[in-house]
Design a protein around this nucleic acid. Structure first.
Length: 130
DNA sequence: CTTCTTACA
DNA sequence: TGTAAGAA
């Protein structure tokens, strides 16, 4: 009596919910990130697919590559111990953080260079105007 | 009217 | 990823 009324969604339902186009959803499917059921040609998305899409969007926000997200998802439904899943996830987080830190340093360096260059230019201009 | 595939930008 | 085209 505890039927899990498996709610299903059309591709447009999900596209609206996540503010993405149906093209994007099919794109992710091509990449193997999601595998919705089919009713003939139509794609039928389960609540499980919906969760996956949610994970994909989160990964995207954090700047992870689709390939990285895919790996995490594959692990998620393969190794249920979740240990390996977390280990890989930690690595991803670390490398992402390293990359951002590097960018932050690069930006700081560039701002500094621009500042000195600006000073030199304005100084040179004042000389010529005298 | 909604979704699908395929091809091209 | 967006867009367009033709079929279902």
């Amino acid at each position: 009596m505890t039927e899990k009324r498996q709610k299903t969604y059309s591709i447009t339902d999900l596209s609206k919910e996540f503010d993405i186009t149906t093209r994007t959803i099919r794109f992710y499917e091509d990449k193997g990130l999601i595998s919705p059921a089919r009713e003939g040609q139509r794609r039928i998305y389960s609540s499980r697919d919906r969760v996956r899409l949610r994970l994909i969007m989160r990964g995207k926000r954090l700047g992870f590559a689709l390939s990285e997200i895919q790996e995490l998802i594959d692990l998620y439904d393969t190794d249920r111990s979740e240990v390996m899943q977390l280990q890989v996830f930690l690595k991803r987080i670390q490398s992402r953080r390293d990359a951002l830190s590097q960018q932050q340093q690069d930006i700081t360096a560039m701002l500094s260079e621009l500042e000195t260059l600006e000073e030199q230019c304005s100084g040179l201009l004042k000389q010529k105007q005298r």
